[in-house]
Simulated scan of single mutants.
Amino acid sequence: MTSERSIMKLLRAILGRPLLNLLGVLLLAVLAASTVHAREYDDVIKSQYIEFAVYRDFPPYSYLKEGVPAGIDVDIAKRIASELGLEARWQWLTADETVDDDLRNAIWKGSVVERKVADVMLRVPYDREYAYAQDGYGLPRNDMVVMLAPYHKESWQLVRDIKKTGEVRNLAIFQYQPIGVEIDSLPDFFLVGTYQGRLRENVHHYSTVYGALADLNAGKLSAVAGMRSQLEWGLPNKPSNFDIDDDGLEALGRKSWDIGIAIKENYRQLGYAVEAVITAMIDSGDMAKVFTQYGVSYELPSTYELDAE
């Protein structure tokens, strides 16, 4: 309430007490109406349910299968809820322009339309540099949330039809061969700009990576760039001439990144409880089994790799 006290003190100096009383009541009413409160750990346990924010139509992580929630993140969330003795509920999140926007909509403020927040958000980039990033005024960009409990390492990779690309392992071949990408993804920007733009004419854009994979299967493309998990899930019966790796992407700004959870900054007890379940799943091998069920390779987050060294 520090900001509210500051505003009231300023109004007192300008207006005096008579008008202050009326304006103060109106101000506090507006602030209360505009604030969406996350739930403390005890509130979550008492309610007997926990609500997870997951991305809408985002296979293999979170999607509806015949009207039923499914996906890697959905299964992880169900396991977390079960271990805490709670029912899992869902807040389906439509990706906004940035992760900052998604965190605001899902965790600490709520969207303009629904004004509702979830208890936990899944599939959040777990990165110390990002977590402590500052805005243009030198203020923390993400001080309203805490990111913790990394549970997977994701990466950008290429799937090639080696009948068309041969043994060439760099990107030069795509000066002559077509490659598909999801529009406005990092590989899209990278491929269009690399080699002084000489690949641009052969970079084909799709609304999703799965549209590109369909054309790869149909022989219309020589390769597709995307997230490894999506490439693997989208090719359940991968032909022997399709090869998935990150060769040629060495100059990409960030080839891999850890994935974790986010909670409201002042409700860390809930985050620690969720983190304990995730850690146990990783240590027991159950986390890897979740990914395997979807035909996706599991890779330990960087935190675990450092601990093993």
Rank of each mutant, 00 (worst) to 15 (best):
D119N: 15
Y55V: 08
L122F: 02
L15V: 15
I107P: 07
H205R: 15
Q157G: 08
H37Y: 09
L84S: 02
Q293T: 10
N142K: 15
L86E: 03
V274C: 02
L300R: 06
Y294H: 12
F190E: 07
N217V: 02
K46C: 02
L186F: 04
E305H: 06
Y130V: 10
Y49P: 01
V296P: 13
R79P: 13
A288V: 00
G110N: 02
T2Y: 03
L103W: 02
R17Q: 10
T94D: 00
K65L: 05
A172P: 00
V54R: 09
G166L: 06
A251I: 14
E4M: 05
L93I: 02
E182F: 01
P178W: 05
A70K: 10
A218M: 12
Y272P: 06
I259P: 01
E299Y: 13
A33H: 06
Y126I: 00
N170E: 01
S284P: 02
Y63F: 15
A308D: 14
A88C: 04
R128M: 15
A29H: 07
I107V: 15
R12P: 00
N21P: 03
A29D: 11
P239Q: 12
R12G: 12
Y132M: 14
P301Q: 08
L86F: 00
V117E: 01
F242D: 07
L186Q: 11
Y206K: 08
K289V: 00
W90Q: 03
E87R: 13
L15D: 11
L306A: 08
R39V: 07
V203K: 11
L10V: 09
A81M: 04
Q134F: 05
D75L: 08
L270G: 09
T292Q: 08
A212P: 06
K116L: 10
D246S: 05
S256V: 03
R39L: 05
Q230H: 05
R268H: 14
A276N: 04
A81Q: 08
L300C: 01
L93T: 02
A81H: 06
V112W: 03
S47N: 12
A118R: 08
I50H: 09
E40I: 07
G295T: 01
L213A: 07
N217Y: 05
D143V: 05
Y132I: 12
I162G: 01
A251M: 14
D307N: 14
Y267H: 13
S82K: 13
Y195F: 15
V209F: 08
P150D: 09
Y195L: 09
E201Y: 07
I72H: 12
T35D: 03
L31R: 11
A214R: 11
G180F: 12
P187S: 12
